[in-house]
Computed example of a mutant assay.
Amino acid sequence: MQQIAPEHLSKIELVECPRDAMQGWAHPISTATKVDYLRQLLEVGFPVLDFGSFVSAKAIPQMADTAAVVQRLDFKSLKTPTRLLAIVANQRGAEQACLHEEIHFLGFPFSISETFQIRNTNSTRAESFERVKAIQQLCIQHGKELVIYLSMGFGNPYADPYNSSVLNEWAEKIAGLGIKIISLADTVGLATPKQIKDALTILIPQYTDIVFGVHLHSKKEDSLAKIQAALEGGCRRFDGALKGIGGCPMAQDDLVGNMDTELMIHYFHEKGFDLSLNDNALKAALDMTSRVFI
């Protein structure tokens, strides 16, 4: 594998995603348990915490208490550099998220696969693009930042058309709305390292004012190769979840886990990155996972 000299490294932005870990968990996780776990994660000092979502409680019952969670976090009292991100799927959810000044980012899952977009947000890609326009205006009005996840960003299990032209087409449309953060999501773990590197190598030079991230799902044996490929492709924003827990419950029956945050931390340390995380708080958060995810 290509070695990357530490002197050429820029800052890595780790996005910890307990929301993605929790949302498909089979057993209900209490509000109090979520709050305790999130407060511990906030002590670690991740740049971004994808903590909850304002979506249909029928579709994702595990996230029905997100408003209560953010209220009980007592975020303002915590001395943390972490900024909160909440996922929304429509304008109503975005309006609810905007009521909370503690939330800095709103994330919208925009699928390159028409089938999955309908399955995930009950709207076509064309309809969802109109939603993105409206949500972006809400974000501007309320001082929030919109993050667009291009889900099924490396192919899909539904036989919907996919190639680099499809990816580029939607990236261009999203960029045209003034979106400054786009994350390529390997929703069901289909991506190869070559696909990841090639996509980023094409997109990043085209849109120099946009931060491109990756939200990769992966089997353990493929994780390091995918991280390496994204890094070599120029990516510096990586989503993950402690112990690789989670996956998208709307995608397919067999969930492929999230990228393991602990694995990424070790990897980036070996590459010479200073992640500025609280190691003791991280250890405590790792210990908590066995009590949260039971």
Rank of each mutant, 00 (worst) to 15 (best):
T261E: 08
P109D: 03
C98D: 02
K173T: 01
G244N: 00
F51D: 00
L85W: 00
I174D: 01
Q40S: 08
A5E: 15
E130F: 10
G257V: 03
H104G: 05
H269Y: 12
V292T: 09
T289Q: 07
N163C: 12
D160H: 10
A230L: 04
G153D: 02
M288A: 14
V166D: 06
N156L: 04
D253T: 15
S223W: 06
F46M: 04
I103Y: 04
G52A: 14
G24M: 06
F54K: 08
H104C: 05
T82E: 01
D186E: 10
G272E: 12
V48G: 01
E102I: 00
R236G: 01
N163M: 13
K58Q: 13
L286W: 09
V132M: 14
L184M: 15
S164N: 11
E145L: 01
L255P: 00
Q195F: 01
I174Y: 03
V70M: 08
T115V: 09
L146C: 08
Q62N: 11
K79R: 15
G107K: 04
M250D: 06
S53L: 01
Q117G: 01
K226F: 05
E101Q: 14
H104L: 09
M152A: 09
S30E: 12
L242W: 00
P6M: 05
G234V: 07
D36K: 13
P109W: 04
K243F: 13
I140H: 14
L231T: 09
G247D: 06
K58T: 07
K144P: 12
F154S: 04
F54G: 04
S53G: 15
L99I: 05
D65E: 14
F154M: 07
M288P: 01
T66D: 09
I179T: 05
G45N: 05
D222S: 13
D50N: 15
Q3K: 13
I103S: 04
A171N: 12
D198F: 13
M264H: 00
I265Q: 02
L167T: 01
Y149C: 02
E13M: 12
H217C: 08
S276Q: 14
I4T: 14
I12G: 01
L277Q: 11
K79I: 11
E7W: 13
F273Y: 15
R237A: 03
A89H: 09
K133L: 11
K194Y: 11
S223V: 06
C139K: 07
I181M: 05
A64W: 04
Q252I: 10
P47V: 07
A64Y: 06
P28Q: 06
M63E: 06
N280I: 12
E7C: 08
W25R: 00
N278I: 08
D253Y: 04
G153C: 09
V69H: 10
L106S: 00
N156D: 07
T208L: 12
I118Q: 15
L78G: 06
I210L: 09
A21I: 03
A171L: 02
V214E: 05
G233R: 11
A94H: 05
